[in-house]
Nucleic acid binder design. Structure first.
Lengths: 333, 333
DNA sequence: TATAATTAAGTAAACGTTTACCTAGAGAGA
DNA sequence: TCTCTCTAGGTAAACGTTTACTTAATTATA
């Protein structure tokens, strides 16, 4: 049988109120002797308070939900780690949910988290959908969206990176290094980041007086497979290019692979730039020049904002946009 | 104000017991009319049951703790995903904890999870330590260790992979393909898997009549950095080798990088084999031949065992060892 | 010395459920 | 008609805490 506050109280010959105060360090008015006696008993009997019972009264569970598409996608472990680090520091637990970007899983997780009385939710979805925002609307807990925001959603906080200026920065660098015909292998244009990166790409071209050539733009998915195929497609269509700006690092890795196989040297013949700066970028040959996205920071900051909102629900909506950073390695000259 | 079961009961003019039975589908003895009325009210007022309150009575929180060293380490997202998939299927939540292999964080997480009344814990630690097992001993909930077991620990379940035979399989394959002097760049010998893989390596050599040469064995860490340095070290010491069996894929990736830089072709001059089969192995050039470890399966199976134990605490201790599989790609000839 | 303030506790309700047990009425069997 | 068994639902305690309020004793103040 698990030992409870009542058992300790009885053994110490005090009331449960007294024990509670001691456990929660609200013990200004407890004599030293009593405190010590209770503490000794707690130690001796290995009493651990039941936080579920506390939650009933305090209405706080000190746990937060983290809904992401897939922890297996190299982008997310970093943000999850950021979330968990801050949460842990503040005494919060994080409940991990993989939605696979599926609406029904998202909705079901939101429901489950609500039933479990989490104090707040951090949410990422790669598609901009509306149904989910309805679910959030009836939640009485704060929600922070990270990376991709949701249309029509009135999240109490939003954290994104400046994809447009990141892409601008990357493409500008390539142009300055002498690349003239830069292919853009983008992600799915249904996602905001892909849109923004494309915009940054176009802005840079335009600012440097280069005409945008739509034959140089390909839309695909955020994976190596697509990078590989995209290059092959460009090659078979005899499209000339001396550089590739990729929608993310995975695309870049696939692209380099295709280039290698076709005997096109990187960065000798073609320069390649990625986006994200996942760990793999440092390990692939050649090391990837890329636009670094502060994934860990995003998670950390999201948790910070969320917990701030949990503690001060009256705080007003926050909207943070994080800066990217160019990381120059070996895949560009 | 949040709406509770009492509100619904009052509105439907029934008792909370009735509402509870309906919500939990224990409604054999509820008339259709009453059930419908209650269900409508629930729908209309968006009532969601407070599972915290249920937990107080049922003594079950339907959540499990997952303690891993670092979700950012490419090995773990897959197992986390496996855990979460099975847990979710069974209606359980998973609480993610990154211990960084630090004893104090491990202990602190165990305490927090206990306070939050999780129904069970899945635990991985890379070092074999004892202190933690004491913490587990006083827990009244089931614990499953995955990947590395803990000495002196009486976990109710244990799930590992057969590292010895995996390594044996990998090294045998290399020998059969004609590799004669196979370097072993191992992980830290304080961890069981490293020990076992080393054993498999030696067994294979011995079974094929090759004398073990201790100059061919290097102990290091499980990262690309070490693979890179290990190769350089072997090279500067003028150690001859035509193959490398690496402690894991990261080491292999680092090794290939060093080999490339030194103008040694893979697999032309030297064959390289990894261990784990992380995603990166498929994306690196050349693609890595490796011993595939069923990470996702480990997590999935661990969750399965844990939840089985939660439901049937009288079930006896389980000990599962998963098989590895050789995956032949391009880094061996 | 009488009163006020402080200290060191204790009392008991409340949090939102579940569940063992109870009850009243209706139909069935003898 | 009487008893038995269902059916449909209700009662109230219990789960383990927290906390607003109370109380008794001690100390300080006037």
């Amino acid at each position: 049988m698990k030992i409870t506050i009542k058992d300790i109280a009885k053994m110490a010959d005090v009331s449960t109120a007294t024990v509670s105060k001691i456990v929660n360090h609200k013990d200004q008015n407890i004599s030293h002797a009593t405190r010590q006696k209770v503490l000794d008993l707690i130690e001796a009997h290995n009493y651990v308070p039941n936080r579920i019972a506390s939650s009933m009264i305090t209405k706080k569970t000190h746990s937060i939900g983290l809904i992401i598409p897939d922890i297996t996608n190299p982008f997310f472990p970093e943000v999850a780690r950021g979330v968990e680090d801050y949460a842990n520091m503040e005494g919060y637990h994080v409940v991990l949910c993989n939605s696979d970007n599926k609406l029904d899983k998202e909705v079901s997780y939101i429901g489950m988290l609500q039933e479990k009385m989490v104090d707040g939710i951090i949410f990422t979805s790669s598609s901009l959908r509306n149904k989910v925002s309805k679910e959030f609307l009836r939640l009485q807990i704060p929600v922070i969206t990270v990376d991709r925001d949701i249309t029509g959603m009135r999240a109490q906080g939003k954290i994104t990176v400046d994809n447009t200026s990141g892409a601008y920065q990357g493409v500008s660098y390539m142009i300055e290094r002498g690349y003239k015909r830069i292919l853009h292998l983008g992600g799915p244009m249904t996602s905001k980041p892909a849109l923004d990166r494309f915009e940054g790409y176009r802005n840079a071209l335009s600012d440097y007086g280069i005409q945008f050539d739509e034959k140089l733009f390909f839309e695909g998915n955020y994976n190596a497979q697509w990078g590989y195929e995209g290059v092959l497609e460009a090659l078979t269509n005899k499209i000339e290019f001396d550089g590739i700006f990729c929608g993310n690092d995975m695309i870049a890795i696939g692209a380099i692979k295709a280039l290698n196989e076709k005997g096109i040297s990187v960065p000798g013949n073609v320069g390649v730039m990625g986006f994200d700066d996942i760990y793999m970028a440092t390990v692939v040959t050649p090391n990837l020049t890329t636009v670094c996205q502060p994934n860990y920071q995003m998670g950390y900051k999201a948790a910070e904002m969320l917990i701030e909102l949990i503690k001060h629900p009256e705080a007003k909506m926050m909207d943070v946009v994080l800066k990217t950073k160019l990381v120059i390695r070996e895949s560009t000259k």
